[in-house]
Design a protein around this nucleic acid. Structure first.
Lengths: 204, 204
DNA sequence: CCTATATTTAACTAAACGGTTAAACTATTT
DNA sequence: AAATAGTTTAACCGTTTAGTTAAATATAGG
């Protein structure tokens, strides 16, 4: 009873690109339609207005992000392994879905004012997961008594900014760009985090 | 030969707020004028168009940022002290000038496409400064052979995201918000970075 | 105190934008 | 092949936006 439907995922892909590149205000609904190869009115028919489009993009991206972390946690036993695994999971997810770091960073910059409520809840769950994982490591005696929140933001902040600037760093300083591939990013962060930067255990 | 001039710094302050809150595209020129207590046409007379306004805001903020780092470096001798000092300098600068982290994070999210050329150069100088500082620490034997770029983005990424989310974290999870004051942020990052998270030096 | 000059603004403009609608189209069902 | 129901679009609308302009206002020098 109907002709071939427009692929809804393709619409969200186009929207994600536009939102990632230009932010919510900068994104143009006409441009999203153009990227998706359809008419603007089609967007409203299939998905909804600009806000709904954004909501769907954020939620879809967050889902993938969360799945990656959950898998990373479940596949390991010890706390250090879990940290390394989460690191790898987030970095790879950020590389596959290059658009989400950009969207999340913009949300942070704008005090998450445009972040849908479900996204906020997901963020909270994510933070609690990390916290309990670190607390476990502290309790089992593998970790020092570090601040879990600080660790979490060091990890995500570093991964997102390193991933997003990898191209820029190659252009700006081609012979010394720092870590650019997902593996290089994972390894350089893991190295600093797990070993710490000082050569001799203590410094105080 | 003239009535009381409009304070140009006040215009840039207003512009910085608007750009930080809503990004370049989201910022409204009328709103900037309103915040500065003047008419929109005055902006064009005193500073220039929206792009020029943005350019001036970015350059001014970057200047303060850079000064803070230079002071931090010059006031210390050993590499670990310098790292701690830079950490403190950036965090305090981010707290005083709460708007710049937001603007910088948005630039990173958008591949620095709206970043003025001078800003790009400043960024490059900043990265080289950090790199040489870390290299010094490695050569003098205080640091392990870490990746300077990774360290830099761990530090800035963590500081910016922690600073920008401090309010949100208090609202979202008031009894466990993590580090919120500049001192708490500095200390929690310093603790993880300098000591590393593992209790026993090695883990491999 | 008047004139030249710098400053300020209300009102305007053209373009861009998000969103709507009514009509056209397509394919399945009967 | 006519009816039906889902799909697609061109054209349009009202609003918002960055940017301009011409006229008004305020200040300092002569």
């Amino acid at each position: 009873m109907s002709p071939k439907r427009v692929d809804e995922q393709a619409i969200l892909d186009a929207a994600a690109e536009e939102f990632a590149e230009k932010g919510f205000s900068g994104a143009r609904v006409d441009e999203i339609a153009k990227r998706a190869g359809i008419n603007k009115a089609m967007l409203y028919y299939r998905v909804g207005d600009k806000e709904e489009l954004y909501r769907r993009v954020v939620l879809r991206g967050q889902q993938g992000f969360q799945n990656a972390i959950m898998e990373a946690i479940e596949s390991t036993n010890t706390a250090p392994d879990t940290v390394a695994s989460i690191l790898k999971g987030i970095t790879e997810n950020a590389a596959e879905n290059r658009l989400m770091p950009s969207i999340i960073l913009r949300e942070i910059a704008g005090n998450a004012k445009t972040l849908p409520e479900e996204g906020r809840e997901g963020l909270n769950r994510f933070m609690n997961t990390i916290r309990s994982m670190v607390t476990m490591g502290i309790e089992e005696g593998t970790f020092r008594n570090i601040d879990p929140t600080a660790l979490q933001f060091m990890v995500t902040g570093a991964i997102f900014t390193l991933s997003l600037t990898s191209e820029m760093r190659r252009e700006l300083n081609s012979d010394n760009p720092g870590p650019v591939t997902p593996d290089q990013i994972t390894e350089s962060i893991r190295d600093i985090l797990l070993h710490g930067i000082l050569k001799n255990g203590d410094e105080k």
